[in-house]
Design a protein around this nucleic acid. Structure first.
Length: 259
DNA sequence: TTCCATGTTCCGCA
DNA sequence: TTGCGGAACATGGA
C-alpha cells in the first residue's frame, strides 16, 4: 500500500538489506515497468555497481549507485523482496548480488516505475513536487502558504503531489477524519487553527504509521483505516461512516463529526 | 461475472 | 489560471 509511510518502510528495508553489496547482475523481467530508460542502458549502468545510500521524497524512492541513481515509484501495488532462492510471484526486476542474495522490485499492476536519474534533487524540481511533509523545511508557515489563495476541496489539495508530496487516498481520509474536517470543505473555508491542526495531524499520523512499519493490523483501532465501510459505526463519535467520491477517489468519512 | 482497488496522467470543459 | 470530472493504464481478488 504505497503512500508515504509504506515507501519510507520500503526505503528502510532497502537500506537494511541491499546496501554495500556489488550488483552481480540485473534481470529486467518485464520491460513495461521501466520509465524513460532503455532496458540495455538500465542493466549496463547498474551491473557491477554498489548501492551506497537511499533517499525518499513523497512516494518517490532513490538509491545511490555511484554514477547514477535508481529511481522507484511503487504505484498501487509495488513492493520489495530480499531473498536467497525464491523470487516473488510478481517480480518485475531482480538485482542479484555477489554472495547469492537478491532484491526484487515487484508490482502486480504495473502502475509502478523503475528508472535512472542523475540527481534526485533535479528530478524533484523538474517534476514540481511539493515538500515532503516529514522534511524539516516543511513548517506550519510553509503549509499555510501552500494552501493560500486556493479554492479547491481540502482533500483534492492534500492529494496533489505538486502541493504536498506523499499523501494518498487512505492517509488523506485519515487526516481529515482525525481533524474532523469534511473532505469536500473548500480550503479557503478552513480557519487558521484548523490549518495548523491539519499540519500537526499529518505529521503525527505519518510518524505513527512509520513507527508501526505501515502495517495495517498494527495501526490504532480508532483510525478510520479500519472502518472504511459504508454504515460502519464511527469509533470516535458513534456517527455513521459514509462513502462518496472526491478528486475521483472513493472517500470515506464520518457524516456526524466531519464538517 | 462484475466491481473495486493504496497512483498518475491527459483531455475537455467551466 | 485553476479546478474538476472522466477515462485510460494492467491485473488480481472479493
Amino acid at each position: 500500500m504505497p503512500e508515504l509511510p509504506e515507501v519510507e518502510t520500503y526505503a528502510r528495508y532497502f537500506a537494511r538489506h541491499a546496501l554495500n553489496q556489488r550488483i552481480a547482475s540485473v534481470n529486467v523481467i518485464d520491460e513495461r515497468i521501466l520509465g524513460e530508460v532503455r532496458k540495455e542502458t538500465f542493466v549496463r549502468k547498474l551491473k557491477g555497481c554498489t548501492f551506497t545510500s537511499v533517499r525518499r521524497h513523497g512516494k518517490h524512492f532513490f538509491a545511490d549507485a555511484g554514477a547514477t541513481w535508481l529511481h522507484l515509484h511503487f504505484g498501487m501495488t509495488g513492493d520489495l523482496a530480499y531473498y536467497r532462492d525464491t523470487p516473488p510471484r510478481f517480480a518485475k526486476i531482480v538485482f542479484a548480488f555477489d554472495g547469492g542474495m537478491h532484491l526484487a522490485f515487484e508490482d502486480v499492476r504495473l502502475f509502478g516505475l523503475a528508472d535512472l536519474v542523475d540527481s534526485p534533487d533535479d528530478f524533484i524540481r523538474e517534476r514540481g513536487l511539493g515538500p515532503d511533509p516529514l522534511d524539516r523545511a516543511f513548517t506550519p508557515k510553509r503549509f499555510a502558504a501552500l494552501l493560500e489563495g486556493r479554492r479547491g476541496a481540502i482533500k483534492s489539495l492534500l492529494m496533489t503531489q505538486e502541493i504536498i508530496a506523499g499523501l494518498g487516498n487512505l492517509y488523506v481520509d485519515e487526516v481529515l477524519y482525525q481533524t474532523a474536517i469534511h473532505p469536500r470543505r473548500p480550503v479557503h473555508r478552513l480557519k487558521d487553527a484548523e490549518v495548523q491542526t491539519v499540519f500537526a495531524t499529518i505529521r503525527r499520523i505519518l510518524r505513527e504509521s512509520i513507527a508501526r512499519q505501515a502495517r495495517d493490523a498494527e495501526l490504532p483501532g480508532a483510525f478510520l483505516f479500519h472502518h472504511r465501510e459504508v454504515g460502519e459505526r464511527c469509533p470516535r463519535c458513534g456517527g455513521t461512516i459514509r462513502r462518496t467520491v472526491v478528486f475521483g477517489r472513493t472517500t470515506y468519512f464520518c457524516a456526524k463529526h466531519q464538517r
